[in-house]
């Protein structure tokens, strides 16, 4: 936890060294890292494999976008962007609750399968009601209705949000609730024997995780000023899963940092490696497959283990 302070410090002084085009990407990477960390909250700590995290990202994104631009639904009210962002999180959490109630009482693979098709259902909504949601191209929000305008301000919004989210998730996991999450993950039978209502805690984790996803989605929209169905889509989901798993499920810091690394690698560092039938995505997926097979507990855990052994000897 102590590492949050130097992280905050590093993020605060980063704009002094990094040009704005990259700062823009780093801000996006931080938002993405929150998605990964919040996914880890559900999957890494309660052991329920949620394949539909982007449902809540997209839901939050579209909610905020429409609240900030109510003309899309023919309404005329004024919502402060901050309120819109928070309401987006609340709505996502609410949907998380409904879906959790429906699916988390089932054991086994059904939760994964249902959550896998959820984003697609929500994505179809965007196409079916194009007039409101803008269909494939989405719609953009004029700069005067956006949270903050310049790249530097956007970066700081993303950084502050990332730090707060990380801190809050960490606090939750350190609390009694967090311990119960882990009990559910490690042995559901044992947890039940101890009198823990496992379904309740699974749903709670799902709701919390959906809340962060929704807020992050809403900030994404304010960050890039357009909302589009890519926020619901499978590639984003996969990137979240890959970052979390490679980072090390159930370690919070591992997924968070790996989220930053993977996002920047995909959209920046690896873009130079593009020739013939190889591009940055192919390299990334190949690395990830290799890591998943060779270090199934995640890079974070494996490296930590190695370092510990090295320190002992």
């Amino acid at each position: 936890m102590k590492a949050i302070i130097p992280l905050a410090f590093l993020l605060a002084i980063l704009p002094m060294f990094v040009p704005s085009a990259y700062l823009y990407l780093i801000g996006l990477a931080l938002l993405f890292a929150v998605l990964v960390a919040s996914w880890d909250l559900m999957v890494g700590y309660t052991g329920q494999v949620n394949l539909g995290h982007t449902t809540f990202v997209g839901l939050g994104a579209y909610t905020a976008a429409i609240l900030q631009l109510p003309a899309r639904i023919g309404a005329a009210f004024d919502v402060h962007p901050i309120v819109a962002v928070i309401l987006a999180g609340v709505l996502s959490a609410f949907f998380g609750l409904a879906i959790g109630l429906l699916t988390l009482r089932l054991k086994g693979y059904y939760f994964s399968l249902v959550t896998a098709i959820l984003p697609l259902v929500f994505m179809q909504k965007v196409f079916v009601w194009r007039g409101v949601f803008g269909g494939e191209e989405g719609f953009s929000i004029p700069s005067e209705k956006i949270l903050v305008a310049t790249t530097l301000e956007k970066y700081y919004v993303a950084a502050i949000f990332a730090i707060i989210s990380l801190g809050v998730i960490y606090a939750i996991l350190r609390s009694k609730i967090g311990l119960r999450f882990k009990a559910v993950r490690d042995s559901e039978e044992l947890a039940e024997a101890l009198g823990i209502d496992t379904t309740k805690y699974k749903i709670l984790a799902f709701v919390l995780s959906s809340f962060f996803a929704g807020v992050a989605g809403a900030i994404f929209v304010n960050y890039r000023m357009t909302v589009a169905p890519d926020l619901y889509d499978v590639p984003l989901m996969l990137l979240i899963i890959l970052s979390a798993v490679i980072g090390g499920l159930g370690t919070l810091w591992g997924p968070f940092l790996m989220g930053i690394i993977v996002y920047l690698a995909k959209n920046w560092w690896l873009t130079a490696f593009r020739f013939g039938i190889v591009n940055e995505e192919i390299i990334l997926y190949a690395i990830l497959i290799a890591v998943a097979i060779l270090m199934p507990r995640g890079v974070y855990n494996e490296v930590k283990e190695k370092l510990r052994r090295f320190a002992k000897s």
Binding site: L238, I241, L242, V245, I277, A286, I289
Partner: peptide, 17 residues
């Protein structure tokens, strides 16, 4: 989880290819 990751990553790799 690892099985999902590996098979999904392989699918996306082939898609890019």
């Amino acid at each position: 989880v690892m099985v999902i990751i590996v098979t999904l990553a392989f699918a996306l790799l082939v898609e890019q290819f």
